[in-house]
Nucleic acid binder design. Structure first.
Length: 317
DNA sequence: CAATAACCCTGGGTGC
DNA sequence: TGCACCCAGGGTTATT
């Protein structure tokens, strides 16, 4: 499941090829990938073909590409293509004619800054992912919308027009823990208002973003917290420790290129990530806990699985 | 407003 | 070989 490290790996892979590339064609193999685009397939094509991609930006699990529209229809529009990988989305970079990738839903062809033609193939088995064009709006805190290479400065040192903007459809997503403008105080305060279990809160993208089932389980294992421990019951010190572990785990996973647990996550070259070898809880059902040797348990929780050590992650009332 | 439930969606893998 | 069934869950929307 693509979470922050996987999405960042994709972003970092796309950015060098697509920054300043101009979209030349869009091939839609499955219109359902556009269910988040209100205007439908034709409107998407009409807007993006001929537009220049100015950057590839990420906040949490959301990706977007600010667009420079052709001169004849620029107007006042500040638009971006927004992509979400959902459960099983991939964005592969291929050259035209490269062997077909199974389950490709959309192919966006572009001419790169140095004149090469590339294809961004959007592959998505479960169709929870999506592509859309959306309006960019100012961020709530006035800081950059998300992470991108070169922090959006032009050659003259001025900020790019899109820097402090975010797609309207992602504006409610809070900053992720690797964002330089991550507001830890606000997150700690919010924890104190939440009676839900800490895992539910970690997965709430409106509290902090980028964490999914894998990194939630890993962070809780590391912090020796039970998934149902009420968030408000954590001391500030414990909550800070948890956030520190979240940051360390996410950062390490980014350097490993993310976690490939099955065929559903690949980088832009179709390669798997290496973080799976570092997992201590997720997917380790029946294996000995690396801290105490007790068998890792998996419990059904919120329509998914929760992996934890029953000995070192006890619920404390 | 907070918490929870329902819903969307498919193909790879498994067991018979 | 075929087929029914199970499984992975992120994010939005509806409901309590």
């Amino acid at each position: 499941m693509p979470e922050l490290p996987e999405v960042e790996t994709v972003r970092a892979g796309l950015a060098p090829a697509l920054t300043n590339a101009v979209v030349t064609a869009v091939d839609v193999l499955d219109a359902r990938s556009f269910k988040r685009h209100p205007g439908g397939v034709e409107d998407f094509k009409a807007t993006i073909i001929g537009s220049k991609i100015l950057a590839v930006v990420r906040r949490g699990k959301f990706l977007w590409m600010p667009l420079e529209l052709p001169a004849n229809r620029s107007g006042d529009y500040k638009l971006a293509m927004v992509g979400h990988l959902g459960m099983s989305g991939q964005m592969l970079l291929r050259t035209p004619g490269f062997a077909d990738d199974k389950l490709t839903r959309v192919i966006i062809q572009a001419r790169t800054a140095d004149g090469q033609i590339v294809e961004m193939r959007f592959v998505d088995q479960r169709l929870f992912g999506s592509l859309a064009i959306d309006e960019l709006v100012p961020t709530k805190d006035g800081m950059p919308g998300g992470y991108s290479n070169g922090i959006g400065e032009t050659a003259t040192g001025q900020s790019a027009w899109w820097l402090n903007l975010i797609p309207a459809s992602a504006a409610h997503i809070t900053r992720d823990p690797l964002d330089v403008n991550f507001d830890e105080k606000a997150v700690l305060t919010r924890f104190k208002t939440k009676n839900s279990g800490i895992k539910r809160v970690l997965l709430d993208q409106q509290t902090l973003s980028g964490i999914g089932n894998i990194y939630a389980d890993e962070s809780l294992w590391r912090s020796q917290l039970h998934y149902d421990q009420p968030a408000a019951s954590l001391s500030t010190a414990k909550a800070k420790e948890l956030l520190e572990h979240v940051r360390e785990i996410l950062a390490k996973a980014v350097t490993e290129g993310g976690t490939s647990f099955d065929e559903q996550y690949k980088n832009v070259n179709g390669e798997s990530g290496y973080f799976a070898v570092s997992l201590n809880a997720y997917g380790m059902t029946g294996m000995p806990c690396k801290r105490c040797g007790t068998e890792i348990k998996r419990e059904n929780w919120m329509n998914r699985g929760s992996h934890f050590c029953p000995k070192c992650q006890k619920l404390k009332i």
